[in-house]
Deep mutational scan, measured.
Amino acid sequence: MSIQHFRVALIPFFAAFCLPVFAHPETLVKVKDAEDQLGARVGYIELDLNSGKILESFRPEERFPMMSTFKVLLCGAVLSRVDAGQEQLGRRIHYSQNDLVEYSPVTEKHLTDGMTVRELCSAAITMSDNTAANLLLTTIGGPKELTAFLHNMGDHVTRLDRWEPELNEAIPNDERDTTMPAAMATTLRKLLTGELLTLASRQQLIDWMEADKVAGPLLRSALPAGWFIADKSGAGERGSRGIIAALGPDGKPSRIVVIYTTGSQATMDERNRQIAEIGASLIKHW
Score class of each variant (00 low, 15 high):
T179H: 00
G226D: 11
I243G: 01
I243Y: 06
F13P: 07
F22G: 10
G279T: 07
W163S: 09
L10V: 12
R241F: 02
E166N: 13
P224M: 04
H5D: 09
F58V: 09
E277T: 13
R241V: 03
A34T: 11
D161Q: 05
S68K: 00
P65E: 02
A182I: 15
I259E: 00
L137R: 01
N50P: 15
R189H: 13
D99R: 07
D269W: 10
P105N: 05
Q86L: 13
G236L: 01
E145H: 09
G52Y: 05
L199R: 10
A124E: 01
R159L: 05
S201A: 10
S233W: 02
S68E: 00
H156C: 14
D174G: 05
N130F: 00
A266N: 12
L146Y: 06
R189I: 07
Q88K: 12
E270P: 03
F228W: 05
R176F: 09
R202V: 08
T267H: 12
L219S: 03
D207V: 11
G239D: 02
G239T: 02
K53M: 13
I256Q: 01
A84L: 10
C121Y: 00
P105A: 05
P143V: 07
R189M: 10
R91M: 06
F22A: 10
I45F: 12
D36P: 05
A16D: 03
K71Y: 00
G234L: 01
G251Y: 09
I171G: 12
E56F: 04
S254Y: 09
A77P: 01
R41Q: 10
R271V: 10
L188G: 04
I140D: 02
A211M: 10
A77H: 10
R162C: 07
L188V: 12
V101C: 10
R7A: 10
E210M: 10
G194A: 12
N50L: 12
A123M: 03
R91F: 05
P249R: 09
A15I: 14
A15W: 15
D174I: 03
Q97P: 14
L150N: 05
A148L: 14
E175A: 14
K190N: 14
V72G: 03
I283F: 11
H285S: 10
H110N: 08
R176N: 08
P165N: 08
V29W: 15
L10M: 12
P181N: 01
E270A: 12
L19G: 14
E108P: 07
